[in-house]
Simulated scan of single mutants.
Amino acid sequence: MDGVGQKIKARKGETAHRKTLKKRHNHYFLYALLAPALILTIIFKYVPMYGAVIAFKDFSPLKGIMRSDWVGFKYFEKFLNSPNFTDIFTNTISLSLFGLICSFPIPIILALMLNQVRQAKIKKNVQLILYAPNFISVVVIVGMLFIFLSPVGPINQLVSAIFGQPLMFMSEPGYFRSIYILSGIWQGAGWSSIIYVAALAGVDPELHNAASLDGANIFQRILHIDLPTIRPIMAIVFILAAGGIMSIGFEKAYLMQTSMNLPSSEIISTYVYKVGLQAGDYSYSAAVGLFNSVINVFLLVAVNFVVKKLNEGEGLY
Rank of each mutant, 00 (worst) to 15 (best):
241 A>H: 08
196 Y>T: 00
214 D>L: 15
194 I>T: 14
245 I>Q: 07
170 M>G: 02
157 Q>E: 09
215 G>S: 15
248 I>K: 01
191 W>T: 06
248 I>G: 09
249 G>C: 05
236 I>A: 04
175 Y>T: 02
202 G>E: 00
235 A>P: 03
216 A>D: 12
168 M>Q: 12
206 E>N: 13
161 A>G: 15
156 N>Y: 05
257 Q>N: 07
184 G>M: 01
187 Q>E: 04
159 V>I: 15
213 L>W: 10
174 G>T: 00
253 A>C: 00
161 A>P: 06
165 Q>K: 13
197 V>T: 13
256 M>T: 00
247 S>V: 01
237 V>M: 10
173 P>Y: 07
185 I>L: 12
195 I>N: 06
208 H>P: 03
163 F>R: 15
244 G>P: 11
206 E>A: 14
177 R>G: 05
239 I>T: 09
208 H>R: 11
179 I>S: 03
218 I>C: 12
158 L>E: 03
188 G>M: 04
154 P>C: 14
241 A>D: 08
193 S>W: 06
242 A>V: 07
164 G>Q: 10
229 T>W: 04
158 L>P: 03
188 G>Y: 01
204 D>C: 04
226 D>L: 05
163 F>V: 13
197 V>A: 12
174 G>E: 09
191 W>V: 03
257 Q>S: 02
180 Y>H: 02
174 G>S: 06
237 V>W: 02
165 Q>T: 11
203 V>D: 11
240 L>T: 08
214 D>S: 15
223 L>T: 01
217 N>E: 14
211 A>R: 10
191 W>Y: 15
171 S>N: 13
154 P>R: 12
166 P>E: 02
184 G>C: 01
184 G>Y: 07
